[in-house]
Design a protein around this nucleic acid. Sequence first.
DNA 1: ATGGCAACATACTGCGAGTATGTAATAACC
DNA 2: GGTTATTACATACTCGCAGTATGTTGCCAT
Lengths: 204, 204
Amino acid sequence: MTVKTRRQEYVEATREALLDSAARLFTEQGFAHTSLDEVAASARVTKGALYHHFSSKQALFEHVLEGVNERIAETVMSAGAHGDEPWGRMISGLNAFLDACLDDEYQRICLQQGPAVLGWERCREVEARMMGLLESMLTELSGSGARLTPSPLLTRVLFRMISETALAIGEAEDKQAARAEAGELVTGLLSSVVPGAPAAGGAS
Amino acid sequence: MTVKTRRQEYVEATREALLDSAARLFTEQGFAHTSLDEVAASARVTKGALYHHFSSKQALFEHVLEGVNERIAETVMSAGAHGDEPWGRMISGLNAFLDACLDDEYQRICLQQGPAVLGWERCREVEARMMGLLESMLTELSGSGARLTPSPLLTRVLFRMISETALAIGEAEDKQAARAEAGELVTGLLSSVVPGAPAAGGAS
DNA sequence: ATGGCAACATACTGCGAGTATGTAATAACC
DNA sequence: GGTTATTACATACTCGCAGTATGTTGCCAT
């Protein structure tokens, strides 16, 4: 690959400025109450530039969501990679995810607006990486004999369950307390489903 | 209360025609792709009539959702009322709910569009009745010694979990098979959380 | 040099939510 | 029982905004 010309850098910068502005405005005002003129103005370009880079408002939102999701997924996966025993990795990944839920952009864009704007189906496609992580952890854990046999549906349901606690954290007044309660509840639920864990443990 | 005049009947009929048309169109085309002119035309009135009865498009949707939710809640609650032992009532209520998820209107309006249009918070207010039913059942079951202490968060998480299986049923090609799998999975999960149940039982 | 394309800007269209105003029938009041 | 107020709509309009059509300007290849 040849060295990137200055012009290509400008193009990329424009594109990312649009994505950044969109992420900010979608987070602050929501998808419906954010106009594309606003986004363009915030990135100091016009709507023409926006439509040159993104085919529609939905497409713009989709790219924003993918970016935010990617950022969080990276954090969670790196947290879930370390540790030797399966349960330890599960717990670290889980805690990383719950911590990520304190992130405003992830809250509003991925958890709240995402399903509304893109539909559940498309939204789950984006979540596929994190779902995959959860699924592999579940099968690994179930190796030691699980109460429930792992299945795509089980993974999906557990993932949504965790997302719901994430939403609860986001809505709570005292987010730290909610974060703690959610952590205990989810680990408790998981240890009910998959044995071989500290029966009821709060992990920080 | 005085006898209802013929005119009041007409008014009520108009209002319900609007609600019916809106429910149909929102279900078929979704909230965003349904225009109020369309709804009004389908009810054989004009937009003026619609705005006389409902203050905004959101308000119309909200009333539609409340109606659909009420209809389902009635079914579920009556199903959950019969039976003498708590677990039996829980199972019947659960099955009634999962069956209700085969209902297109409930699927699309309450489970898919609802959170998107009204936001999760308002949506949970509407779901309060069914959440209350679940919560009372949980506390009742936990009387015999639960693995997890019941809490609002637990109720909420379990409810969302069940809703997710509901969505899965709706999206599946073979809905009957999905319905069966969901039934087993949810009863299995619940019996993991709340003991005193048939360890793993498929209830029809 | 020049033709073409990429990366924008400008100007316009159309749809649809919401509003303002009209109007016919009913209800209220004296 | 005639006048007035109100209800239950219809008609006509505004306006914000997503999407489109059409420039305009520089860069790059040949």
